[in-house]
């Protein structure tokens, strides 16, 4: 690989303060050898044009800030390699949420759904002096669930969420719901299931599996949703 290379971008731009409507901007930037990830390239681009706006923080895939639509697929800029990326690199905001500016979206609806599943442990027993015990096997049930970084790649790639963002909890929220249903320390199983028993909140998931395809942490919301549906079914019979 040569040390300097120029890459082409096509970026969704919109500043409500000055633009009547959004447009796609063609722009290129020369990268240094140390620019390995898409986020590095965006930072380089921003040094050239400081009006380009995007969220970013940890740059290592744990904070969930820099989710965007990259060449048609949702992902994190910081985990997207520049080595084999197709040019021009087309960047758009996450689909289905209101755009605030450039690739920055308003995530209110996404977090509202997350909050709606009561994303906290419910255990009404008096707190013991020491930790509540949990076997390593029971703890393992939480693997693949608790690691979610709330980046919204999944929910904003889900057609059911696009249609009903106000009624369907969406893959991220449902993954979190199952994280608490699966926790042996949690006592609110039936309350949690009641909260999801509705034609929209849970059952709008039609196993399209876009969520699984895009999750930058390799989590599987569809599987978790299937398990919630199983619990519902077992409860009904």
């Amino acid at each position: 690989m040569s040390s300097k290379r120029t890459v082409q971008f096509k970026i969704y731009r919109y500043d409500p303060d000055k633009d009547d409507k959004p447009y796609m901007q063609d722009i290129s930037v020369e990268l240094e050898e140390s620019d390995k990830k898409l986020l590095d390239a965006l930072v380089r681009l921003k040094a050239k044009d400081d009006t380009l706006s995007f969220r970013r923080s940890c740059r290592e895939g744990v904070c969930g800030s820099d989710a965007m639509n990259i060449n048609g697929k949702n992902g994190l800029a910081c985990l997207t390699s520049m080595d084999d990326i197709v040019q021009p690199i087309t960047l758009r905001p996450l689909p289905g949420l209101p755009v605030i500016r450039d690739v920055i979206v308003d995530m209110t609806q996404f977090f509202k759904q997350y909050h709606s599943i009561k994303p906290y442990l419910i255990n009404n027993d008096p707190a013991p002096e020491r930790e509540r015990l949990q076997s390593p096997e029971d703890r393992e049930e939480l693997n693949g669930l608790y690691e979610c970084i709330l980046c919204a790649c999944c929910s904003t790639s889900c057609p059911s969420f696009w249609w009903n963002p106000d009624k369907f909890v969406g893959p991220a929220g449902l993954l979190a719901a199952y994280r608490f249903l699966a926790d042996t320390r949690d006592q609110a199983t039936s309350e949690r299931l009641d909260n999801l028993e509705d034609p929209y909140r849970l059952f709008r998931c039609h196993s399209i599996m876009n969520c699984v395809d895009v999750c930058p942490k390799n989590l599987n919301p569809t599987k978790a949703i299937g398990k919630i549906k199983d619990m519902m079914l077992r409860r009904a019979v």
């Binding site: 906290y120 930790e131 939480l142």
Partner: peptide, 19 residues
């Protein structure tokens, strides 16, 4: 730390179920 466990923090566990 115990408080945090009570809040729901998913600590790894020893064979006897402790943090």
């Amino acid at each position: 730390v115990v408080e945090l466990e009570h809040y729901g923090m998913p600590f790894d566990r020893t064979d006897n179920g402790k943090i």
